[in-house]
């Protein structure tokens, strides 16, 4: 029982982590909590089923195309909604992000309807639901293996991009001092666009994984997932990429254990309780540095 809960929690946790890094990276470069990020996650799932359902694209290719489409969408949102407010008060951008989130939810309802719909099961390779490993009472399907493999390789890839490439170093430089980055000749707009593209593609992947895992998707699915991933990012220390990864996993496990041992009704409550506790006792998060509020 405990082991199976841990597996469920970890599965959920790595997915939260995937969404949370998108929040934390954007916060790092433009100090904005991008509330529309949850909607990118939702659009990722819908893009994927649309590619499969309407165009007959194979499952794995559809995932890649959906990530690309979501990247483009993330870049577009930043360009249209946030960039014009770059020198405005932070609150103006924050409110815009909330508005963008509501707009995108409603846009999805107009396009795909408001009712939950299943993922297109016929498109999902059958072996994913077969058992991969059985250890005592714990069963791991190939879908679990797929989720872990995808999320871990993406986390490693992301770390390599951020720490080893020129554009990744430019992202970190921009997060530390925008004026200095500009004076080095770094095209600030291009780096911000790149950050949105990167975060959005990971968010879309998370949405697809969740839609396949639970076999369900709906236009408001990004709200709760977004809030939880945000909680994970805060837990890990907003602005810290390793922190967001860790925060996602901790939150997923805490939630699964809470649901398993207390009551499944408290599943969401656990996430909020964790977030409140972090804000009260360690506002800078597990791996975050104490920062002065610049608002």
């Amino acid at each position: 029982m405990l082991e199976q809960q841990l597996v469920n929690g970890l599965t959920l946790g790595v997915i939260y982590a995937l969404i949370a890094v998108g929040y934390t990276m954007v916060y790092g470069v433009i100090e904005l909590i991008n509330f529309a990020h949850g909607e990118i996650y939702m659009f990722g799932a819908f893009f994927c089923t649309t590619f499969i359902g309407a165009m007959g694209v194979p499952f794995y290719l559809a995932i890649i195309l959906a990530m690309a489409a979501a990247s483009l969408m993330g870049v577009l949102i930043e360009y249209v909604a946030y960039k014009p407010l770059r020198s405005s008060h932070r609150l103006a951008v924050l409110i815009t992000a909330i508005g963008m989130s509501i707009f995108l939810q409603n846009l999805a309802m107009i396009i795909w309807g408001s009712r939950p719909r299943p993922f297109i099961q016929e498109a999902v390779p059958a072996y994913l639901s077969e058992t991969a490993v059985r250890l005592g009472d714990v069963t791991l399907t190939w879908l679990h293996v797929f989720i872990f493999a995808v999320t871990f390789s993406m986390m490693i890839g992301l770390n390599l991009i951020i720490n080893r490439t020129k554009i990744g170093t430019a992202m970190r430089a921009l997060a530390q001092n925008r004026t200095a980055a500009q004076l080095m000749g770094i095209n600030v707009n291009a780096v911000i666009s790149f950050t949105f593209a990167l975060g959005s593609s990971l968010g879309a992947m998370a949405g697809i994984l969740v839609a396949v895992y639970y076999n369900s998707m709906y236009p408001t699915m990004g709200y709760v997932a977004g809030v939880k991933a945000f909680a994970a990012a805060v837990l890990g220390g907003i602005g810290s990429v390793p922190g967001a990864m860790l925060g996602g996993i901790v939150l997923g496990v805490a939630e699964a254990l809470g649901a398993g041992y207390v009551s499944s009704l408290y599943r969401d409550g656990v996430a909020y309780a964790v977030m409140i506790a972090v804000i009260i006792f360690r506002p800078s998060g597990i791996l975050g540095k104490a920062v002065v509020d610049k608002a």
Binding site: K166, T169, A173, Q176, N177, A180, M184, I186
Partner: peptide, 22 residues
Amino acid sequence: PEGRMIFPALTVRENLLMGAYL
């Protein structure tokens, strides 16, 4: 720039490489 504005969390070498960004 005034106040030096180096990138505090980047290594010295990474700072230098950012200077050569273009």
